[in-house]
Design a protein around this nucleic acid. Structure first.
Length: 548
RNA sequence: GUCCCCAUCGUCUAGAGGCCUAGGACACCGGCUUUUCAUGCCGGCAGCAGGGGUUCGAAUCCCCUUGGGGACGCCA
């Protein structure tokens, strides 16, 4: 086929873009771009109960953050729109009517309870459940009668019984038995199509030539092929990507975070550090919903999880792309790293920019093996990228980080100050580390907090030797007129030499003295940045704090 | 339970019958640098899941076992 390559990423708007979705999007993007084709974005919002308000906007923002821009789709439009399935109802109905007219689909009106009972019965008898196709299809009159009786009316596909073959670029030919395709529902009782039906219709209408998706969809593919045959549509080329697993070997999912929070909340309630009323308030759920969550039946939204994490001082694993942004990763690093989850060019190269991936990527070289997501390696990638980035890139990255961390102490600073921060913090791995290292310099003096362990270890231990040093240094620094890095350096080093101690013995008390903890940039730089007045004021406050 | 996919260091992977004494990266361990936290530098440990074949020769091909993962919805 000489068609231009068209791929799509088709998420459902249920939350932020997660790591696995991002990789799927990336591979689709790469495949399209390397062939000079188009990458489309389509929103699969056919489940009214699962759609989350605002999720689509988040999804788009995450994709844009990564630099995966779509040629057609929401907000940019295109000739095959609309690109939101909820807006394409009429098309699905038209196709369903066609299948019904041709005897390839039929109305059914089983209730949820009836189907559940059949599934349970099958389970009990240890056989697989298959929907039993009726002897003859319901007539229009019967459908109307059912509707009038309040029964849910759906349209089911009359699946042909045959062996199915999926030709997969990564897995080769996969053969599935006839029962791999059953009489699935194609139009739900609410009039919206099921995923399977919408995908087939849209991929045809949007002239999608290649479908790259997670391996969890492999079993769905024969369904789609069957529907394509029934509708007379072309079958795109398929490639099923290996699943991304956690380091523990479990499927990476939002549940990860939910589970950690649930366990912590339960422990906190059991341990008495939080009562149930507070927990419920933080969750933002009503008592019933809260109980359901607690019993592992539902999941909390991202915001509620974040609130719990803050309250219980939990660090949640990054799973959503947004999490990595908030943690201070560079988008090009995240992109580079996920490209390596399942794909390799065949040599030892690991570092790629997006345009380099476009050139180097080959679907045929995507492996079939599930990959575990190794955060430690991602961190190293970010560390390397930060070290290699120029100031302009870092400043933009830091600004972006601050835009999603408005509460940061660095947020209000001007570019020149941020450039200094970047320079003094050199060696940081994530923007969040830069913040942890330099933030305390910029908070109001009154907002200063002291790390109890640091105060104990550096100032109070050994009869307060550190505190005494700090007092003497305060006097000494009060004598320094020009509060420059050089002058402070000279004075402080001089003090250390006079007393025959290492620099550490004087730098650490000073550090705790001005920032309340043991971490800061070079002590000379830190003091100079603070200025004489603030330095002396903070040291006085620290001495006061210790005497209290 | 049924169906499907997969199997090289702890992790991501290179390897498409002799180039393999199995290469790289991360982690880890040891050392060095250092005013803290980091960074950086040097060195080291570590793997073809097991068993059968095929072949002069197998990490590479075939079979079985085992192990892992995924799917079995009016979710996508």
């Amino acid at each position: 086929m000489t068609d231009i390559v068209r791929t799509r990423f088709a998420p459902s708007p249920t939350g932020y873009l997660h790591l696995g979705g991002a990789r799927t999007a990336l591979f689709n993007y790469l495949l399209a771009k390397q062939a000079g084709g188009q990458f489309l974005l389509r929103i699969e919002d056919t489940d009214q109960t699962r759609n989350i308000v605002g999720a689509e906007a988040k999804l788009l923002a995450d994709l844009r953050w990564l630099g995966l821009l779509w040629d057609e789709g929401p907000e940019v439009g295109g000739p095959c729109g609309p690109y939101r399935q909820s807006e394409r109802r009429e098309r699905y109905h038209e196709l369903a009517r066609r299948l019904i007219a041709e005897g390839k689909a039929y109305y059914a009106f089983d209730t949820r309870e009836e189907l559940d009972a059949q599934r349970e019965a099958a389970q009990r008898e240890k056989r697989n459940f298959r929907y039993q196709r009726p002897e003859r299809f319901a007539t229009d009159a019967e459908v109307e009668a059912a509707r009038a009786a309040g029964r849910p009316v759906v349209v089911r596909f009359a699946a042909p019984a045959q062996e199915w073959v999926v030709r997969d670029t990564i897995l080769g030919e996969v053969r599935l038995p006839p029962d791999a395709v059953d009489d699935l529902v194609i139009l739900k009782a609410d009039g919206l199509p099921t995923y399977h039906f919408a995908v087939v219709a849209d991929d045809e209408d949007m002239r999608i030539t290649h479908v790259l998706r997670g391996q969890e969809h492999l079993n769905n593919t024969p369904r789609h092929i069957a529907l394509q045959h029934a509708l007379g549509f072309r079958t795109p080329a398929y490639a099923h990507l290996p699943v991304i697993l956690t380091m523990e070997g479990k499927k990476m999912s939002k549940r990860e975070k939910d589970k950690i929070v649930r366990d912590a909340v339960k422990a906190a309630i059991a341990g008495g550090s939080m009562d149930e009323t507070e927990a419920r308030a933080i969750s933002g759920a009503d008592p019933e919903a809260f109980a359901a969550w607690r019993d592992n039946q539902t999941q909390l939204d991202a915001e509620a999880l974040t609130r719990f994490a803050e309250r219980l001082r939990l660090s949640l694993p990054e799973i959503d792309i947004h999490d990595f942004r908030v943690s201070g990763y560079l988008p090009e690093v995240v992109l580079n790293f996920i490209a390596l989850l399942g794909w390799s060019a065949g040599d030892d190269r690991e570092k790629y920019a997006l345009d380099e991936l476009v050139t180097a990527f080959r679907v045929e070289r995507v492996g079939a093996v599930n990959a575990r997501f190794d955060r430690a390696k991602l961190l190293k990638f970010n560390t390397d990228a930060v070290a290699a980035a120029d100031e302009t890139r870092l400043l933009a990255g830091l600004r972006d980080y601050l835009s999603v961390n408005p509460q940061s102490a660095l947020t209000g600073l001007d570019d020149d100050t941020l450039r200094i921060v970047l320079r003094l913090g050199a060696g940081f791995r994530l923007f969040s580390e830069l913040e942890a290292k330099c933030g305390a310099i910029f908070i109001a003096d009154e907002a200063m907090v002291w790390d109890a362990d640091a105060v104990q270890k550096v100032l109070l231990k050994g009869d307060g030797a550190g505190l005494e040093t700090l007092r003497e240094l305060a006097d000494l620094l009060a004598q320094v007129d020009e509060f420059s890095v050089e002058a402070i350096d000279t004075a402080v080093r001089g003090y250390a030499e006079q007393h025959g101690v290492g620099l550490g013995k004087v730098a650490q008390p000073l550090r705790v003295g001005v920032v309340g903890g043991t971490v800061s940039p070079s002590i000379f730089e830190t003091l100079a940045l603070l200025g004489k007045e603030k330095t002396l004021k903070r040291i006085a406050m620290t001495i006061g704090h210790c005497e209290r």
